[in-house]
């Protein structure tokens, strides 16, 4: 059986030749993402904004009366609800962000929840409640704080570890790549106004994990090559490292994608946001390892001297094989 080769042997793509324009584009994308987050804002779900989310199915109807629901719930006086299709055509999610004075009062929030669900049940006989989330402002505030704290702590600790195992430039490069990935994911959620919930935090964490994996594989090869080819100019060495790991990069990304795409297409509606975020993250994470993490090493003044040459037997064999010794 002839085995599949996704990437031909000995590629020599000059990735880093275009590092400046790519890096500029990346910075622009990061800036654009944050601009979007700050201007359009994230479409916080009840986890982070507090309030009430109701998921329901209209069992006898082909298509849920979304516009009608919007005015029905709006008429109750708790502000404009967000009504969206959720899964099938006859399934909806209705989100009401309770006014601050209602959300702050635990009992009033309960009353509001009962009133909203009750009025819909009365008006639509085929209204089937599939689930609801009711989060008080206090709890949602804690969720926000915890999520931000967890993300920052995890990213910093990881950068520290890379610094210890490699060099400080690698730590900075890795951290910046992670920042890039998180920013772009947030930017996508702001752009498409997809619901931003605790699940998405889990997705961002998965992206950080994956992107880190990728960055470390490239860095590991750079470290190895820095020891091996002490005279090679850094851009050339980085290109070599990226090319050497290219087959792995493509194969791993592709494998993950084929696992994720079915989840995206036929998976449960409740997982859509999460899977969409991770799928985007695979592209972004792979890209950032090559165009953020690697070129930063050049600009941060990385040199091969940092790694004490410990020439192993394997390295020596390697040089003999290449006719260098």
């Amino acid at each position: 059986m002839k085995l599949l080769k996704l990437v031909p042997d000995d590629t020599n793509i000059k990735f880093l030749k275009w590092r400046i324009p790519f890096f500029a584009v990346s910075l622009l994308l990061i800036a654009a993402s944050w601009a979007l987050v700050l201007t359009k804002g994230l479409n916080y779900g009840v986890d982070f904004a507090g309030g009430l989310e109701v998921r329901a199915t209209f069992t006898q109807t082909q298509e849920a009366p979304i516009a009608q629901l919007r005015s029905d719930v709006g008429a109750l006086g708790y502000g404009d609800p967000v009504v969206q299709r959720f899964g099938k055509d006859n399934q909806v999610s209705i989100r009401v962000r309770l006014p601050d004075e209602v959300a702050a009062d635990k009992e009033a929030a309960q009353v509001a929840a009962n009133q909203i669900v009750g009025s819909l049940k009365d008006k639509y006989p085929d209204f089937r409640l599939d689930g609801n989330d009711n989060v008080s402002g206090k709890v949602s505030g804690e969720f926000r704080k915890d999520a931000v704290l967890a993300l920052i702590a995890a990213m910093l600790a990881v950068a520290m570890y890379i610094w210890l195992r490699f060099e400080w430039q690698f730590g900075v490069g890795g951290l910046f790549a992670l920042f890039h990935d998180v920013s772009l994911t947030l930017g996508m959620f702001a752009l498409f106004q997809m619901e931003f919930s605790l699940q998405i935090i889990a997705a961002i964490l998965a992206i950080i994990g994956y992107s880190l994996n990728d960055t470390i594989v490239v860095y590991d090869r750079i470290r190895e090559n820095l020891k091996k080819f002490r005279k090679m100019p850094l851009p050339e060495l980085l290109d070599l490292s990226v090319n050497e790991t290219l087959a792995r990069t493509v194969m791993t990304s592709l494998t993950l994608l084929v696992a994720l795409v079915p989840l995206l297409l036929v998976g449960p509606a409740s997982l859509f946001g999460l899977v969409a975020a991770i799928t985007l993250g695979i592209f972004v994470g792979t890209y950032s390892s090559i165009y953020m993490a690697a070129p930063l090493l050049i600009w941060l003044g990385m040199t091969g001297d940092s790694f004490v040459p410990d020439e192993t037997a394997v390295d020596r064999q390697e040089k003999i094989a290449r006719g260098e010794a």
Binding site: A147, A202, L205
Partner: peptide, 14 residues
């Protein structure tokens, strides 16, 4: 490292 920190600082779903 990231996982342990998430467990320590994160809330329920995290």
């Amino acid at each position: 490292i990231a996982g342990v920190l998430l467990f320590l600082f994160g809330s329920g779903p995290i």
